[in-house]
Structure formats: structure tokens, C-alpha cells
Nucleic acid binder design. Structure first.
Lengths: 349, 349
DNA sequence: CTGAAAGCGCTTACAG
DNA sequence: CTGAAAGCGCTTACAG
């Protein structure tokens, strides 16, 4: 017994279900029922147990629960990156939704897309007893991890496109990148550009939805379809793509697979003395917090990665058992992609 | 996904220690000894057990181990942000080191610095049986969480400064921000600037090391010490600080608490028609992958957050038991902060 | 060097 | 509606 009045069992042993049972004058099974809000406990008994739980500061041992239940109520996120805006924001969304339901969230990083590394990462998380897995499958490493998940695992995924969904058997979520890319492309065309060039982020599939949307918009406007430039995720890679593009004086409009690439492209344009947007227009993808302060402020597509992460968690959550949270609780809806027009776009010179 | 919704109701019983024992013709206790590489098992027995483990594809049930041991070999990271460069990179470093030692890593986000939110977040992770906690305490929320961790928990922290270390009893790691800020400031002074202005990120303590280093460098050069401008973490906040600063034509050199702030400052400068670096020099902090492609390319301080994360994990790892990994294994050393000189700095106009 | 027993803190049938 | 029993898959003394 300590001074504050809270009773702690001797020698650091934490309070268990049995301590609560003793205090409440019931068996520990009854305590278990109350904890799990199972029906069939007399109201007065329930009250008493709850009171004892409160008094003793009892908290269920998740480890013991997991062992007895055969499965932990937890989710671990597998991702190839922690720093990219979309990835980090999706992780935050997943964590937020998971926390709201009391699910711990783990994280595993896919260091490389080699079969060996993927195998190791998947092995580390593929224990059905450890709960569910969410893989951020925006890249090759992620898609491979998804494919390598053993049957019997509860898995959900954030995928690049609707098509990517057909490559595996797991529930998944995706943003409407195709429409978003179409809108951005059509906007540039509407400004008077003859065509729009595309700098691509790596795709987990052969053709990404962003690229498909861009192409579809060009085709439906009877505009020429230039070969897309394949880049990585980094500003540096965008810079290299930008150098290629600036060499061609015909280029007046560039759509980039993400804001980092756009940053690199802007750098290359400035280096080459091409004015933005007077000579060349640039559009990004993501609307990271930085892009508004690029030079010039970047026109880009805002994507709700946090909402996507929340939705994915809810999907995976459903794999466990009926939700305990009241259905009428306010649920943050996912925002549709929006074209945010700023200062890198205008009519061709 | 099947129609019922529950796709993995604790399905096929996985292979246990007893199955291995039976196959190897020993008792399951012996299998346990082999798994935990305890001394006192005849070599031939050990070999046989290992062979059976391999054949059956046995993998220890971490949950059962945690329950029996009284504590999980795991670590969970508490952070106020998942997207900021330093935070996300530190998380990656922690995960990398943890993975190398087979420790699962969890993540909890501190949504807000209110006592209520902190209490909830700390409660959720403060179970000594669940393993250790690492808190990224670069902000008020983090420092409060650190202070609120109950005794008996194994806790480590990434803190802002050497002083922050004295505010709690946990092992922690920090970067030498003070020297780095001094170096950056001295560099600007050496260029001929009369003084250097400072735009501060939020500090978890009263005076951050970055700010202290900046001040010390000014004082040791007998330069005037302007009032620092308090900002947030965002580019927008840097932009607002930049607007204040551009109003004063005396300002020729600005040190920013991070690269995002520098981005906003650059934007404000450009908007005001002040040339960088001809009229005003700007230095950032972090060297995020983007800063090399700012307009102009940002002079900044490179900080090894990944190494810091790895080091913090190792510290916390020591709270469990003697390391099993051979000591002569190659260990990635932490890099000292480096001033990376690019295009935003030069002599005053 | 190896095995039998007890127990970690729960949940889940099964009785009553 | 409530309790006694068994068991989840391990580890940890304790014997031998």
C-alpha cells in the first residue's frame, strides 16, 4: 500500500485478474467476462467488479490475452520508407485509427526489394498469432511483400491503383489517382499547351494509375503522347529528368509523379534559364506541406493519405471481430483528390 | 476475403515446442534451452534439436515467451510526428537497429501536448511487460510524455540537448546541435556579416542547443545578439518569420532551426525582392533530401538522425539483457554534424 | 546434461 | 448468472 491510497501487490508484481476478483468477492472468470463486456453478468456484480478494477488500477495483460485468445489484437505496418510524404502520412492515419480502437501498431521497414530482404521482413511479421499486417504497397518491395504473405495471415494493403488490387487476394484501399491525373492533364491542356510531358515515380505495377490518367487525358484531347520519363522518388531524380526535358524547347508543360520530383524539375528549369510558368508549366502530386513554398509555389494534386490509412485500418479491423465502437461515432471521411492551382502553371509562352 | 468477414479465426494450430521435442526425441525443456542458446546442452542433442526445428519450420511464439518471461523483447516509439524529416529518419534508424536484433517495434503518436492526450498515450504504452519505450522528445509533447512515464518502465529518449537530459532519469541520446549552430553562425560571421538572425523551431526546453550555439558564437565574436524569432516546424511558419525579417533592411544573414523554416524564409525573401545570397544569406538545419534543390540550393547542417536512432535503440537494448550479437560485428558509427555549404550563403551585399 | 512440475495472466468451454 | 477446470506456448527453478 502506498501513500496515495492505490494498492500495489508486493514486489512489483502488477495487479491481476485474481486480485480484482478477490477485491470484488467474485471468481476471476467473472472479472474476465466484465473486461470483455460479455453478456450474462448481473448488473450489480458488474458494477462491483468495475469498481474494484478502478480501485486497484487493474489493466489487462495484453500478452496473456493474446496467448489465451490465440491471436493478438494488433496490426503491424510494412513499408519501404518512413520519410516519403505519402508513406509517413498514411502511417499516421493508420496509427490514429488503430489507437482509437485500442490496437497497438508495429512497424517493419522493407530495406530493399531483393527476394532475400522481402522474405526476411515478411517472415518477421507473418505470424497469425501476432495480429494483422498492413502493407504499404506503392512500390515493388511492397507488392512483393504482399505477394509473399502466407495464407492464414490477416492482411490489408494500400495499393497504387485499382488494377494492383487484382494481383493479390487481400482487402485493400487506393486513391483515385487516375481521375486526379486526368484532371491535372486536362487543366494544362485547357491552358493551351499542345501536350503534357510526364515524369513518373517508380510503379509497383507496369502502368500506374497516375500515368494511365495522364495518357487517357492526352488521348481524349487528341494530343500527342510523349514517352514518359521514368524517375525515382527523389528530388535528385526529378532534377535529372528535368535536365532531359529542358533540352527540348518544345516542352511547355510537365506533370510530375510527386512533389519531390517537381522540386527537382523546377531546379533544372531554373538552371537552364527557363521561366516558370511563362515558358514551362509544372504540376506535382501529393501537396506536401513544402510545395506551397517552392519557387514558384507549386500547382499540385492534394491527396488524402491520412484518410486512406484510416480506411485501411478499418478494413483490417473488420478481420478480427465485430467493432466495439458505436457505429454512430463521427467518422472522418476521406477527401477526394483535388487539384490545387498555384504559381507554376499558366498558358504557354 | 471470405463472405463471413473473419478470415483468420485462430486457424491451423502452429508447430510448438512440444512438436519439436517429440521429433527430436527430447523433452520440450531441452528445446527451450536450445532456442535460448543456454549453456548445458550436449552438442549432439543441440544439433538434433536444431535439425528438427528446421524440418518442422518451428518458430517460437513470441507471445508465450513474453508471458513466461514477464516481459516482451520489444520496443515502442512514442513521437509527436511521423512526417518531419528528423523524426521519420530517427524512426527508421531505431527500426533498423531493432530489426537487426529481432526486436519488434511499435509506434504511438502523440496527437497533442495536452495533459489528457499525453496521459492517454503514456498509459497505452506504459506496461513494463510490453517491453521498452523510446520517446522522441524534441518537443513539448515528447518531453511531457517522458516525464509522465511511470517508474519501472524501461525508457530511452532522443532529446534536444545535453541539458534536456537532466530533466528526467532515463538514458538518452542527442546530437551536438550546439557546436553545429556555432559553426554555422561563425561561418556566416566569417563571410563578413555584422550579425546573424535566428528563426527558432519550437523547443522542448527553455533554450535549445541550436539557439544556445548561435548565441554563443555571436557573443564570442562580439556581434550583436538580435532577438530570436520563435516559429513552428512548418514552412508556413518560416514564411511568416521571413516576412518579419525582410521588413528590416539591416538583416543580411538568417540561421533557421530547420530546412522547412528555411524554405519559408527563402519564399518570403523572394517575394520581397531580396536576392539570396547577394543581399541575404540563409542557412538551414537537417539537410533533408529536398534542401539541395531549393531555390537556391540551401546551405545547411547535415544531421545523422538515423545514426542517433540506432544508438538510442542500442542503449535501450542494454536494459534487457546482455547482447547476443557478437561484439565485433560491424557497427555503423554516427556521423558528426557537418555544415554543407551550397548556394544560399555569401558575403553581405 | 536432461526431465517433471509449476506458473506467467488470461480465455474458453463446461458445469451447476 | 457464476465458478472450477483446462489450456494457450513458453520459461524457470528444482530434481536427478
Amino acid at each position: 500500500v502506498n501513500v496515495t491510497g492505490h494498492i500495489f501487490p508486493a514486489s512489483g508484481r502488477s495487479v491481476s485478474i485474481r486480485d480484482v476478483a478477490r477485491a470484488a468477492g467474485v471468481s476471476y472468470q467473472t472479472v474476465s467476462r466484465v473486461i470483455n463486456s460479455q453478456a450474462g453478468v448481473r448488473e450489480s456484480t458488474r458494477r462491483q467488479v468495475l469498481r474494484s478494477i478502478e480501485e486497484l488500477g487493474y489493466r489487462p495483460n495484453r500478452t496473456a490475452q493474446a496467448l489465451a485468445r490465440g491471436r493478438a489484437r494488433a496490426v503491424t505496418v510494412l513499408t519501404a520508407d518512413t520519410t516519403l510524404y505519402g508513406y509517413a502520412t498514411a502511417l499516421r492515419g493508420i496509427e490514429e485509427a488503430a489507437r482509437a480502437e485500442g490496437f497497438p501498431v508495429g512497424i517493419g521497414v522493407l530495406d530493399s526489394p531483393t527476394p532475400r530482404a522481402i522474405r526476411a521482413a515478411v517472415d518477421a511479421v507473418s505470424d497469425p498469432r501476432a495480429g494483422a499486417v498492413i502493407v504499404i504497397a506503392y512500390d515493388v518491395a511492397g507488392m512483393r511483400a504482399l505477394a509473399a504473405m502466407p495464407p492464414g495471415m490477416a492482411v490489408g494493403a494500400l495499393v497504387e491503383s485499382a488494377q494492383a488490387r487484382h494481383r493479390h487476394r487481400h482487402p485493400c484501399v487506393w486513391l483515385d489517382d487516375r481521375s486526379a491525373a486526368m484532371e491535372a492533364t486536362a487543366y494544362l491542356l485547357g491552358l493551351g499547351h499542345r501536350t503534357v510531358h510526364y515524369v513518373a515515380i517508380p510503379s509497383s505495377t507496369r502502368t500506374s494509375d497516375r500515368q494511365a490518367g495522364w495518357k487517357a487525358a492526352l488521348e481524349s484531347a487528341d494530343a500527342p503522347v510523349p514517352a514518359p520519363i521514368q524517375a525515382e522518388w527523389t528530388p535528385r531524380s526529378g532534377y535529372q529528368a528535368g535536365r532531359q526535358l529542358t533540352a527540348d524547347k518544345q516542352v511547355t508543360a510537365i506533370l510530375c509523379g510527386n512533389d519531390d520530383l517537381a522540386l527537382g524539375v523546377l531546379y533544372a528549369l531554373r538552371e537552364a534559364g527557363r521561366a516558370v510558368p511563362d515558358e514551362v508549366s509544372v504540376v506535382g502530386f501529393d501537396d506536401a506541406p513544402q510545395s506551397e513554398f517552392y519557387t514558384p509555389a507549386l500547382t499540385t494534386v492534394r491527396l488524402d493519405f491520412a484518410g486512406l490509412g484510416r480506411d485501411c485500418f478499418r478494413l483490417v479491423r473488420g478481420l478480427f471481430d465485430p467493432p466495439t465502437a458505436p457505429a454512430d461515432e463521427p467518422v472522418a471521411l476521406r477527401e477526394a483528390p483535388t487539384l490545387v492551382i498555384r504559381d507554376t502553371t499558366g498558358p504557354p509562352g
